[in-house]
Design a protein around this nucleic acid. Structure first.
Length: 294
DNA sequence: AACTTCACAGGT
DNA sequence: ACCTGTGAAGTT
Protein backbone atom coordinates (compact mmCIF):
# COMPACT_ATOMS: atom_id res chain seq x y z
CA UNK A 1 0.00 0.00 0.00
CA UNK A 2 1.61 3.17 -1.25
CA UNK A 3 1.39 6.12 1.08
CA UNK A 4 -1.30 8.65 0.37
CA UNK A 5 -0.08 11.59 -1.74
CA UNK A 6 -1.46 15.09 -1.35
CA UNK A 7 -1.48 17.85 -3.94
CA UNK A 8 -0.42 17.91 -7.54
CA UNK A 9 0.83 14.74 -9.18
CA UNK A 10 3.95 15.39 -11.23
CA UNK A 11 3.28 14.96 -14.93
CA UNK A 12 -0.51 15.18 -14.68
CA UNK A 13 -2.12 18.35 -15.94
CA UNK A 14 -5.55 19.83 -15.30
CA UNK A 15 -8.10 18.73 -17.86
CA UNK A 16 -6.35 15.45 -18.56
CA UNK A 17 -8.77 12.65 -19.46
CA UNK A 18 -8.53 9.08 -18.18
CA UNK A 19 -10.34 6.17 -19.75
CA UNK A 20 -11.50 4.48 -16.56
CA UNK A 21 -10.89 4.23 -12.83
CA UNK A 22 -8.01 1.84 -13.39
CA UNK A 23 -6.19 4.47 -15.45
CA UNK A 24 -6.90 7.12 -12.80
CA UNK A 25 -5.45 4.86 -10.13
CA UNK A 26 -2.39 3.99 -12.22
CA UNK A 27 -1.68 7.71 -12.66
CA UNK A 28 -1.71 8.15 -8.88
CA UNK A 29 -4.60 10.60 -8.98
CA UNK A 30 -7.13 8.45 -7.14
CA UNK A 31 -6.11 5.02 -5.84
CA UNK A 32 -9.38 3.21 -5.02
CA UNK A 33 -11.12 1.60 -7.97
CA UNK A 34 -14.64 2.15 -6.67
CA UNK A 35 -14.65 4.44 -3.66
CA UNK A 36 -15.33 8.12 -4.34
CA UNK A 37 -13.00 9.34 -1.60
CA UNK A 38 -9.31 8.44 -1.37
CA UNK A 39 -8.30 8.92 2.24
CA UNK A 40 -8.00 7.59 5.75
CA UNK A 41 -8.71 8.59 9.34
CA UNK A 42 -5.13 9.53 10.15
CA UNK A 43 -3.69 11.51 7.23
CA UNK A 44 -6.79 13.01 5.62
CA UNK A 45 -8.36 12.65 2.18
CA UNK A 46 -6.38 13.65 -0.88
CA UNK A 47 -8.80 13.04 -3.74
CA UNK A 48 -12.48 12.69 -4.63
CA UNK A 49 -14.35 11.59 -7.74
CA UNK A 50 -17.71 13.01 -8.82
CA UNK A 51 -19.45 10.42 -10.92
CA UNK A 52 -23.12 10.70 -10.08
CA UNK A 53 -23.02 8.19 -7.25
CA UNK A 54 -24.89 10.35 -4.76
CA UNK A 55 -28.12 12.22 -5.51
CA UNK A 56 -27.33 15.19 -3.28
CA UNK A 57 -24.10 16.33 -4.92
CA UNK A 58 -24.05 19.84 -6.38
CA UNK A 59 -21.46 20.97 -8.90
CA UNK A 60 -21.10 24.71 -9.39
CA UNK A 61 -17.69 24.51 -11.03
CA UNK A 62 -15.37 26.39 -8.69
CA UNK A 63 -17.56 25.30 -5.80
CA UNK A 64 -18.64 21.73 -5.16
CA UNK A 65 -21.04 20.52 -2.47
CA UNK A 66 -19.98 16.93 -2.05
CA UNK A 67 -21.68 14.14 -0.16
CA UNK A 68 -19.64 11.85 2.08
CA UNK A 69 -19.55 8.03 1.99
CA UNK A 70 -22.01 5.65 3.46
CA UNK A 71 -25.70 4.79 3.56
CA UNK A 72 -25.85 4.45 -0.22
CA UNK A 73 -27.47 1.64 -2.16
CA UNK A 74 -25.22 1.18 -5.20
CA UNK A 75 -28.01 -0.34 -7.28
CA UNK A 76 -30.54 2.45 -6.88
CA UNK A 77 -27.94 5.15 -6.06
CA UNK A 78 -30.31 6.35 -3.34
CA UNK A 79 -29.59 6.92 0.33
CA UNK A 80 -30.94 4.18 2.60
CA UNK A 81 -29.24 5.04 5.91
CA UNK A 82 -27.68 7.90 7.89
CA UNK A 83 -24.05 8.81 7.29
CA UNK A 84 -21.39 9.37 9.94
CA UNK A 85 -18.35 11.63 10.32
CA UNK A 86 -16.33 8.61 11.42
CA UNK A 87 -16.13 6.58 8.21
CA UNK A 88 -12.63 6.77 6.80
CA UNK A 89 -13.24 9.02 3.81
CA UNK A 90 -15.52 11.44 5.68
CA UNK A 91 -13.16 11.80 8.61
CA UNK A 92 -10.34 12.18 6.11
CA UNK A 93 -12.12 15.10 4.45
CA UNK A 94 -12.61 16.71 7.89
CA UNK A 95 -8.88 16.40 8.51
CA UNK A 96 -8.16 17.92 5.10
CA UNK A 97 -10.46 20.82 5.96
CA UNK A 98 -9.06 21.47 9.44
CA UNK A 99 -5.44 21.16 8.35
CA UNK A 100 -5.78 22.99 5.02
CA UNK A 101 -4.77 20.06 2.81
CA UNK A 102 -5.54 20.21 -0.93
CA UNK A 103 -7.97 17.71 -2.45
CA UNK A 104 -7.72 16.55 -6.07
CA UNK A 105 -11.01 16.65 -7.99
CA UNK A 106 -11.94 14.30 -10.83
CA UNK A 107 -15.22 14.50 -12.69
CA UNK A 108 -16.61 11.40 -14.38
CA UNK A 109 -19.04 11.14 -17.28
CA UNK A 110 -21.60 9.52 -14.97
CA UNK A 111 -22.02 12.84 -13.18
CA UNK A 112 -24.25 15.06 -15.28
CA UNK A 113 -23.19 18.70 -15.07
CA UNK A 114 -21.81 21.17 -17.56
CA UNK A 115 -18.38 20.57 -16.03
CA UNK A 116 -18.30 16.81 -16.49
CA UNK A 117 -16.65 15.13 -19.48
CA UNK A 118 -18.70 13.32 -22.13
CA UNK A 119 -16.83 10.11 -21.39
CA UNK A 120 -14.14 8.84 -19.07
CA UNK A 121 -12.79 10.80 -16.12
CA UNK A 122 -11.37 14.33 -16.18
CA UNK A 123 -8.84 15.54 -13.60
CA UNK A 124 -9.81 19.09 -12.61
CA UNK A 125 -7.10 20.24 -10.22
CA UNK A 126 -6.88 21.10 -6.54
CA UNK A 127 -9.63 22.27 -4.21
CA UNK A 128 -9.78 23.07 -0.51
CA UNK A 129 -12.48 21.86 1.85
CA UNK A 130 -13.87 25.10 3.29
CA UNK A 131 -16.92 23.85 5.21
CA UNK A 132 -18.54 20.73 6.53
CA UNK A 133 -22.15 20.36 7.59
CA UNK A 134 -24.82 17.82 8.28
CA UNK A 135 -28.28 17.81 6.73
CA UNK A 136 -31.20 15.66 5.61
CA UNK A 137 -30.70 14.65 1.98
CA UNK A 138 -33.29 14.18 -0.74
CA UNK A 139 -33.96 10.62 0.39
CA UNK A 140 -34.67 11.60 3.99
CA UNK A 141 -31.45 10.43 5.64
CA UNK A 142 -28.79 12.51 7.32
CA UNK A 143 -25.80 13.09 5.07
CA UNK A 144 -22.33 14.50 5.70
CA UNK A 145 -21.57 17.30 3.29
CA UNK A 146 -18.43 19.13 2.31
CA UNK A 147 -18.03 22.42 0.52
CA UNK A 148 -14.96 22.47 -1.71
CA UNK A 149 -13.53 25.52 -3.48
CA UNK A 150 -11.05 25.51 -6.29
CA UNK A 151 -7.65 26.71 -5.10
CA UNK A 152 -6.88 28.94 -8.09
CA UNK A 153 -10.29 30.59 -7.70
CA UNK A 154 -9.51 31.83 -4.20
CA UNK A 155 -8.01 35.10 -5.30
CA UNK A 156 -6.41 37.50 -2.84
CA UNK A 157 -7.68 40.34 -5.03
CA UNK A 158 -11.42 40.88 -4.86
CA UNK A 159 -12.57 40.68 -8.46
CA UNK A 160 -15.67 42.53 -9.42
CA UNK A 161 -17.36 41.81 -6.10
CA UNK A 162 -20.91 41.70 -7.50
CA UNK A 163 -20.00 39.24 -10.16
CA UNK A 164 -17.57 37.14 -8.16
CA UNK A 165 -20.06 36.36 -5.41
CA UNK A 166 -22.37 34.80 -7.93
CA UNK A 167 -19.68 32.77 -9.63
CA UNK A 168 -18.31 31.55 -6.31
CA UNK A 169 -21.76 30.32 -5.39
CA UNK A 170 -21.45 32.35 -2.23
CA UNK A 171 -24.40 34.24 -0.88
CA UNK A 172 -22.85 35.62 2.29
CA UNK A 173 -20.64 38.59 1.50
CA UNK A 174 -18.32 37.97 4.44
CA UNK A 175 -17.29 34.52 3.28
CA UNK A 176 -14.60 35.22 0.74
CA UNK A 177 -12.33 37.48 2.80
CA UNK A 178 -12.50 35.13 5.80
CA UNK A 179 -11.67 32.13 3.67
CA UNK A 180 -8.64 33.88 2.20
CA UNK A 181 -7.47 34.96 5.61
CA UNK A 182 -7.84 31.60 7.28
CA UNK A 183 -6.49 29.29 4.65
CA UNK A 184 -2.79 29.27 5.14
CA UNK A 185 -0.89 27.37 2.50
CA UNK A 186 0.00 23.98 3.84
CA UNK A 187 3.69 23.15 3.72
CA UNK A 188 5.70 20.41 5.36
CA UNK A 189 7.10 22.89 7.85
CA UNK A 190 3.81 24.49 8.78
CA UNK A 191 2.26 21.08 9.27
CA UNK A 192 5.19 20.00 11.42
CA UNK A 193 4.99 22.97 13.75
CA UNK A 194 1.23 22.48 14.15
CA UNK A 195 1.78 18.83 14.97
CA UNK A 196 4.46 19.64 17.56
CA UNK A 197 1.88 21.72 19.44
CA UNK A 198 -1.05 19.46 18.58
CA UNK A 199 -2.89 22.46 17.07
CA UNK A 200 -2.76 24.38 20.35
CA UNK A 201 -2.07 28.13 20.37
CA UNK A 202 1.31 28.97 21.92
CA UNK A 203 -0.08 32.24 23.28
CA UNK A 204 -3.46 31.40 24.80
CA UNK A 205 -3.48 27.58 24.90
CA UNK A 206 -6.80 27.27 23.05
CA UNK A 207 -7.22 24.22 20.85
CA UNK A 208 -9.94 24.66 18.23
CA UNK A 209 -11.31 21.28 17.22
CA UNK A 210 -14.15 19.37 15.65
CA UNK A 211 -14.52 15.68 16.49
CA UNK A 212 -11.06 15.86 18.01
CA UNK A 213 -9.42 17.21 14.83
CA UNK A 214 -7.48 20.37 15.62
CA UNK A 215 -7.25 23.64 13.72
CA UNK A 216 -4.33 26.04 14.05
CA UNK A 217 -2.25 28.35 11.90
CA UNK A 218 1.48 28.47 11.36
CA UNK A 219 2.68 32.06 11.72
CA UNK A 220 6.00 33.47 10.58
CA UNK A 221 7.69 35.68 13.15
CA UNK A 222 9.75 37.64 10.63
CA UNK A 223 7.53 37.78 7.52
CA UNK A 224 8.59 36.06 4.30
CA UNK A 225 9.40 37.96 1.13
CA UNK A 226 10.07 41.61 0.48
CA UNK A 227 10.87 43.69 2.35
CA UNK A 228 11.31 41.58 5.49
CA UNK A 229 12.96 38.53 3.90
CA UNK A 230 12.31 36.20 6.84
CA UNK A 231 13.23 32.57 6.41
CA UNK A 232 10.86 29.63 6.07
CA UNK A 233 12.42 27.71 8.97
CA UNK A 234 10.91 26.28 12.13
CA UNK A 235 12.94 28.75 14.21
CA UNK A 236 10.86 31.47 12.51
CA UNK A 237 7.48 29.79 13.02
CA UNK A 238 4.78 29.73 15.67
CA UNK A 239 1.63 27.67 16.11
CA UNK A 240 -1.21 30.11 16.82
CA UNK A 241 -4.99 30.35 16.90
CA UNK A 242 -6.47 32.63 14.20
CA UNK A 243 -6.94 35.54 16.62
CA UNK A 244 -3.40 35.56 17.87
CA UNK A 245 -2.09 34.98 14.35
CA UNK A 246 -3.78 38.13 13.10
CA UNK A 247 -2.89 40.07 16.24
CA UNK A 248 0.75 39.07 15.86
CA UNK A 249 0.90 39.87 12.14
CA UNK A 250 -0.78 43.23 12.72
CA UNK A 251 1.54 44.18 15.54
CA UNK A 252 -1.06 44.10 18.31
CA UNK A 253 1.43 42.23 20.47
CA UNK A 254 4.98 40.96 20.32
CA UNK A 255 7.26 38.41 21.96
CA UNK A 256 10.27 39.55 23.92
CA UNK A 257 13.63 37.78 24.06
CA UNK A 258 12.72 36.12 27.38
CA UNK A 259 9.43 34.97 25.77
CA UNK A 260 7.31 37.30 27.83
CA UNK A 261 4.64 39.12 25.83
CA UNK A 262 3.97 42.79 25.24
CA UNK A 263 0.50 43.86 24.16
CA UNK A 264 -1.28 40.84 25.61
CA UNK A 265 -1.12 39.00 28.92
CA UNK A 266 0.90 35.86 29.43
CA UNK A 267 3.96 34.19 28.11
CA UNK A 268 4.83 32.23 24.98
CA UNK A 269 4.71 28.47 25.50
CA UNK A 270 7.52 26.52 23.83
CA UNK A 271 7.66 22.76 23.71
CA UNK A 272 10.98 21.78 25.31
CA UNK A 273 13.33 19.89 23.04
CA UNK A 274 10.97 19.99 20.07
CA UNK A 275 11.00 23.62 19.04
CA UNK A 276 13.56 26.40 19.25
CA UNK A 277 13.04 30.00 18.16
CA UNK A 278 15.75 32.19 16.71
CA UNK A 279 15.85 35.25 18.98
CA UNK A 280 16.86 37.49 16.08
CA UNK A 281 13.46 36.89 14.51
CA UNK A 282 11.78 38.04 17.72
CA UNK A 283 13.95 41.14 17.78
CA UNK A 284 12.97 41.87 14.17
CA UNK A 285 9.25 41.55 14.92
CA UNK A 286 9.62 43.69 18.00
CA UNK A 287 11.43 46.39 16.07
CA UNK A 288 9.54 46.44 12.77
CA UNK A 289 6.07 44.96 13.29
CA UNK A 290 5.00 45.62 16.88
CA UNK A 291 2.97 48.73 17.45
CA UNK A 292 5.24 50.65 19.76
CA UNK A 293 2.41 53.09 20.61
CA UNK A 294 0.38 50.25 22.07
C1' DA B 1 -8.54 -11.41 7.31
C1' DA B 2 -12.92 -8.93 6.95
C1' DC B 3 -15.09 -4.98 5.32
C1' DT B 4 -16.29 -1.04 2.37
C1' DT B 5 -16.53 1.08 -1.94
C1' DC B 6 -19.50 7.46 -6.67
C1' DA B 7 -16.70 -0.06 -11.22
C1' DC B 8 -17.08 -2.69 -14.90
C1' DA B 9 -18.47 -6.20 -18.07
C1' DG B 10 -21.73 -9.06 -19.56
C1' DG B 11 -26.26 -10.56 -19.84
C1' DT B 12 -31.37 -9.72 -20.81
C1' DA C 1 -31.93 0.83 -20.02
C1' DC C 2 -31.92 -2.37 -16.24
C1' DC C 3 -30.35 -5.94 -13.51
C1' DT C 4 -26.94 -9.22 -12.15
C1' DG C 5 -22.21 -11.16 -10.70
C1' DT C 6 -17.47 -10.50 -10.09
C1' DG C 7 -13.85 -7.49 -8.44
C1' DA C 8 -9.32 -4.93 -6.68
C1' DA C 9 -7.40 -1.85 -3.76
C1' DG C 10 -7.23 0.45 0.51
C1' DT C 11 -8.43 0.71 5.37
C1' DT C 12 -9.04 -1.12 9.78
Amino acid sequence: MAEIQFGQIIGIGEGQIFKDRKALAAAGIHRPLQAGIDGNKKDGSSSIVLNGGYVDDEDLGNVIIYTGHGGNDPNTKRQVADQSWDSSGNRGLLISEMHGLPVRITRGAGHKSKYSPSNGYKYDGLYLVTQHFYEIGKDGFRICRFRLEKLSSISPLPLDINESLESYGASETSRIPTTILRIARDTKLSRKIKEVYDYTCQVCGIRISFNGIGYAEAAHIRPLGNPHNGKDLSNNLLCLCPNHHVMFDKGAFTINEDHSLSGVEGRLFIKPGRHAIDTENLVYHNKHIFNING
